[in-house]
Amino acid sequence: MSNFEPKLVCFSCKFGWGYLGDEAELTAQIKNWIPIICSGKVDAAHIVDAFKGGADGVLILGCPEGDCHYQDGNFEARKRVYLLRRVLSSYGIEPERVRIVLSTDPEGKQIPNYVREMSEALRRLGPVKRIRLPSRETAGATAKK
């Protein structure tokens, strides 16, 4: 497990994070970085799909509370994350694998730090266990597990 490299997906709002920074440089530093317009755009289904697609964690960087360009998208995201974390634990996925930070960093220099810090936490948790569904021919053998 020591050489396990967690896969982290980072969504960040373009209004609060990295809009003055060098996007190419940040992209080179941060794997799976998805700048978006408003953290409120991140649907619970996007996070769930990220886990399905092999992510070990999802980090959402939104604007400071009370400071959303679209009124309250960041707080909507925070509420969503709270609900989703409860559901994820029923699927045996640790709630701390989804994190939301409401703050701002126009230069974006903090983004790699947040990603590194969360990646460390994910490294300690280990990978999310993958679920393999049976193929049409070998359902029985797979299904017994």
């Binding site: 649907d43 609900l83 029923s90």
Partner: peptide, 30 residues
């Protein structure tokens, strides 16, 4: 997950503490 997004938008709360108070009443959300 679609309903999570819908339900989150319906919660008329001020902060995360209030979210917790509302949602934690549901024993088995999943």
């Amino acid at each position: 997950s679609k309903f999570i997004s819908a339900l989150a938008s319906m919660l008329d709360v001020e902060d995360e503490r209030q979210v917790r108070e509302l949602v934690d009443k549901l024993d088995d959300l999943a």
